[in-house]
């Protein structure tokens, strides 16, 4: 299997569309025949990240690279950046709006869930410039 590259532009204006990119990646992973738990792990990581992009950073670009050993997800936005990354890792810490909470998110569980279900996660962020989150999900790990 050759390495597959998927790219998505995430619209930051329409909260109802949040999750479309994750849904498409999940569909591709199923077609490729990955096991259900690996697909769920990738879906959780990407969906939480996609929600974050929409509720905090006005959207952005997601690149997904799939090969037989791993799924790599790179989510880049040009949003406000994360002021305190250490706190952002903590369960329950949030700066989300009421709108995000109304959707069932914004309770400070996004990054902890992404960390829990990825094998590698790295955040680069700069205030006023944006944030890039890179995650790797190994297959059958």
């Amino acid at each position: 299997m050759e390495k597959i590259h998927l790219q998505y532009n995430v619209d930051g204006d329409d909260l109802t569309l949040a999750g479309e990119a994750s849904s498409d990646v999940r569909r591709v992973l199923r077609q490729l025949g990955f096991d259900a738990e690996t697909i769920r792990r990738a879906a959780i990581c990407m969906y939480e990240g996609e929600i974050n992009m929409v509720i905090h950073a006005y959207g952005g670009v997601i690149d997904v690279y799939i090969d037989p050993d791993s799924i790599e997800i790179i989510m880049a936005d040009t949003g406000p950046g994360i002021a305190d990354v250490e706190k952002a890792w903590q369960e329950g810490y949030t700066t989300a709006s009421q709108t995000a909470r109304d959707l069932g998110f914004g309770a400070g569980m996004g990054l902890p869930n992404m960390k829990r279900y990825s094998d590698f996660i790295d955040i680069e962020t700069e205030l006023g410039k944006g944030t890039t989150v890179k995650m790797i999900i190994k297959i059958n790990s």
Partner: peptide, 28 residues
């Protein structure tokens, strides 16, 4: 009603009971 709580468990779960009514419920 908190979708991140649903996403906190990777094991197979068949049913979601919720009082929340938006598209993210179906997405989750």
């Amino acid at each position: 009603d908190l979708m991140s709580d649903v996403l906190a468990f990777v094991k197979d779960q068949g049913i979601l009971l919720t009082g929340l009514l938006n598209l993210q419920v179906v997405r989750t």
